[in-house]
């Protein structure tokens, strides 16, 4: 049985008054000794997933189980104990406390758990020695290099010898010489029997991983025939958060673009009539849909791949498309469905 089990996980949160759903229906199983790489661009949900794994953010649905603990059901002291003893976190940008020495930074999680100083001190010294910083214990973060700070951050994450280690962009602020040491250290930590999850957008880390999870699956720019849709009022063309594959042209009727708000209501962002197109940015940039497209009246639309769309409208430049410039569409839909 796997140690870490993520089952049909969906996470959403409010941002700027709107609902964002960076993770939808994610399932994953990881066993001890495995190093999993969460790969994806900024905003794809890597850090969100870490927040859920760390018990900081509750998912909208689905579950996260680590060994016997259902993380999203934990609360109160059980959650505090889980954060202290089960999960260790290596934060992006290290997040060391600047007023403390390296030794004191590593002691912090131990002291927070009321471990006596006489025990916390030697434990922190051992960990810093393990990560190769025996001669830097009394230095403050400001006096350490990026790689050394990252090592202190890893030692701090290991203070309670957690079976689950999360490393958020562990190579983001390091030069290639420092990266080498950190990668070797992460690999060692997994091999010694932990579940190690590393979030990164750095594809150079791929050989490090036992498993790779792409949180923003790339949509292949494949050839597809146009998708002609005859819609009744209220029919949904795509939902906010869906992967974006096509650009749609309105031939007749009216399409409204909606953004779901924090309070559950929808805000009408735009209303499009015959001759307008929509949904172009998601397929161009490989982003999820930022709005829901719904027929406000009976309508006919056609969805094109980006390449087809450019041919259809006379090869406008990408700049024109991205900036939403007016482009001249053909008078008739290809199949005469207006």
């Amino acid at each position: 049985m796997a140690d870490l089990m993520i089952d049909d996980l969906t996470v959403e949160y409010a941002s700027g008054g709107y609902v964002v759903r960076p993770i939808e229906n994610l399932s994953l199983e990881v066993s001890s000794g495995e190093l999993v790489l969460l790969l994806g661009p900024s905003g794809c949900g890597k850090t969100t997933l870490f927040s859920v794994l760390a018990g900081i953010l509750r998912p909208a649905s689905g579950s996260v189980r680590f060994r016997d603990a259902v993380v999203n059901d934990l609360g109160g002291s059980a959650l505090t104990n889980y954060r202290r003893s089960t999960v260790g976190i290596v934060f992006q940008a290290f997040n060391l406390i600047p007023s403390l020495t390296a030794l004191e930074n590593v002691q912090v999680p131990l002291l927070a758990a009321k471990v006596p100083r006489r025990e916390a001190g030697p434990r922190a010294e051992t960990l810093l020695t393990q990560v190769g910083l025996a001669d830097r214990m009394s230095h403050r973060p400001g006096d350490l290099s990026g790689g050394q700070q990252q090592r202190v951050a890893i030692a701090r994450a290991l203070a309670h010898n957690p079976p689950l280690l999360l490393a958020d962009e562990p190579t983001a602020h390091l030069d290639y010489i420092q990266v080498e040491g950190i990668l070797r250290l992460l690999r060692e930590l997994a091999t010694s029997g932990r579940v190690v999850v590393v979030a990164t957008h750095d594809e150079r880390l791929l050989p490090l991983a036992d498993r790779i999870v792409e949180l923003s699956p790339r949509v292949a720019a494949r050839e597809r025939p146009p998708e002609h849709l005859v819609l009744n009022a209220g029919d949904v063309i795509f939902e906010q958060g869906d992967p974006g594959e096509r650009i749609y042209v309105v031939w007749n009727g009216e399409i409204e673009l909606l953004r779901r708000r924090e309070d559950g209501t929808n805000l009408v962002m735009d209303e499009l009539r015959s001759g307008r197109y929509f949904g172009e940015l998601a397929p161009i940039f490989g982003l999820p849909r930022s709005m829901t497209a719904r027929a406000a009246t009976n309508a006919v639309v056609t969805g094109y791949t980006v390449a087809d769309f450019r041919r259809q409208v006379g090869a406008p430049s990408m700049d024109d498309l991205i900036l939403g410039a007016d482009v001249r569409l053909q008078n008739e839909p290809p199949d005469g469905s207006n």
Partner: peptide
């Protein structure tokens, strides 16, 4: 940020 780190690592 320090407080957030402390909370995330289980400080009450």
């Amino acid at each position: 940020r320090d407080f957030a780190v402390l909370k995330a690592t289980g400080a009450p």
